[in-house]
Write a protein that binds this DNA or RNA. Sequence first.
RNA 1: GGGGGUGUAGCUCAGUUGGUUAGAGCGAUCGCCUGUCACGCGAUAGGUCGAGGGUUCGAGUCCCUUCACUCCCGCCA
Length: 594
Amino acid sequence: MSKYRTHNCNELNEKNTGDNVVLSGWVNKKRDHGNLLFLDLRDNYGITQCIIDKENSHFVKLERLQLETVIRIDGKVVKRSNDSINKEINTGGIEVSIDSFEILGVCRELPLPVFSNQEYAEEIRLKYRFLDLRRKKIHENIILRSKVISFIRNEMNKLGFLEFQTPILTSSSPEGARDFLVPSRLNPGKFYALPQAPQQFKQLVMVSGFDKYFQIAPCFRDEDARADRSPGEFYQLDLEMSFVEQEDIFNVVEELFVNTFKNFSNKRLLFNKFPRITYKETMLKYGSDKPDLRNPLLINDITDIFLRKDVSFEIFKKLVNSGSNVRCIVTKNTRDKPRSFFDNIDKWAKEQGASGLAYFTIEKDNDIHAKGPVGKFFSKESLNEIMSQTGAEIGDSVFLACGKLNELEKITSLARDKIAKDLNLVDENVFAFCWIIDYPMFEIDEFSKKIKFSHNPFSMPQGDKNKINFEKPLEILAYQYDIVCNGIELSSGAIRNHIPELMYKLFNVAGYSKIDVEKKFSGMINALSYGAPPHGGIAPGIDRIIMLLANEKNIREVTMFPMNQNAQDLMMNAPSSVNESQLKELNLSLKTKK
RNA sequence: GGGGGUGUAGCUCAGUUGGUUAGAGCGAUCGCCUGUCACGCGAUAGGUCGAGGGUUCGAGUCCCUUCACUCCCGCCA
């Protein structure tokens, strides 16, 4: 028998009545009646109410125990009377009458209450993370995380994938995010880099003939944090398959995600077969490449309306003539919404830095006409045309924005979210997955105006390999895809380019010579030159999957020991200074601070 | 690098137009209480109002600088 317990704190019930038991755990809560003390003992599994009265010599010591002290209790299970049963906890039918106890771990005065639904400042939570992690919600989130990862491993194994580890100390890559660098002691002046993702390694695994690979892979990127983005490190379900096309990857991922999300959430999946939306289409309809498909609102381009003679909305017409576009969002049956509803949205848009959102509502008395501040600018015929282009009907409202394509996409995307929120159109009990496909291979850099890779330079371009028109690089599409759920980007993936000659040509478009490519990606190019299978994969973010399943808005809520926004670990004091001898051994010296 | 929000007791917060000795709940300490499960009742201790400077007869409150945390933009192939 264990010295510390015969049962955990979630096990005992009426059937144990009369048993002598040993429990160990934390003092979660005391209710002291002076001559009678209730003490809730908590462990990982649950809570058991323990009780002691003044007759017992241990009473005074127990009465004075600090909450969160770790104790062992010897006692007897007692059935509770019917009127004192607690249905909130699994052990609520019984209580343990304490015979004796022992303190196993003393606890100082707490910097934050553990048993409380209060919310606390992030700083104190992170500094005392070990206390924060004892709290119910986050404790459960971390357990959920473990279970989800275990489930995914199991599913991947069932699907025939092999799990491999790839190096953590590797070489710096020229593309992408900033690397974390690690100085090499044995190679003075040289640095390892922590992998931003095992991208090249997993391709090498395919070249090595292993066929299907996965890994719950740590990834390191020295970029600034967001609510859904940890600074420094995060985890991906990294996977890669040989002899596959895009469709094969989609099938595996859809099966995995449907199973995982059905298993760990009560929310409904809006699509079991995830819709595929081209990049071009999503940027038009949703203004974003991570659309939230729970939101039914769509964006339409109605620029041509403003070239008509019977439309007299001069501000927009002038902008359209100088190259701007007009896009609109139609809201169904909003004719009875108060003026304030519309004005609030217009005001909100101005706060977002846009010039506002014009709007009108389509009405019909004898004739169709538009009501609202800009309604008078639209003829009956032009309204009919808008209705046929957008599907708007009598009683619907049309919100209009005008601008250059980039800013127009941005504001209409935000407006789509804002309006849906105001009209309460988003079903929170749903997961809406989709694939974004057909990403362009290249794009123009906004500042340098040069051609650059829009995503992964190792992606396979679409179409006949011999007929790709490198003269028009912006028209080349890639077998490059994203998976999105509820407006959150879970992952990018691609069919890889396994043909070195083709890779040289594509890099050439982006301004890299053959020698550049050989220098920077020598390992990769070399490997692809010795018989590489066609292959592709994807790498969904584990942390974001858990966020969705745990219904959390911040990634720290599903991360055991997260860093703060400035990439500091407040509990371990990382990063920290190192002493001179460590630096010397690494052949490093620090520039003196300003 | 830039923009927004927050910062008052160990924790969560209130603090009016600038005006007496800065308050509450929880926690802590002490006392009372034998059926609670957010137990109840009473008392006590606990404050560099993030820091520095300024305006003023007078600053938690107004102004400037700065720090911390956070959200967003940039960034994240």
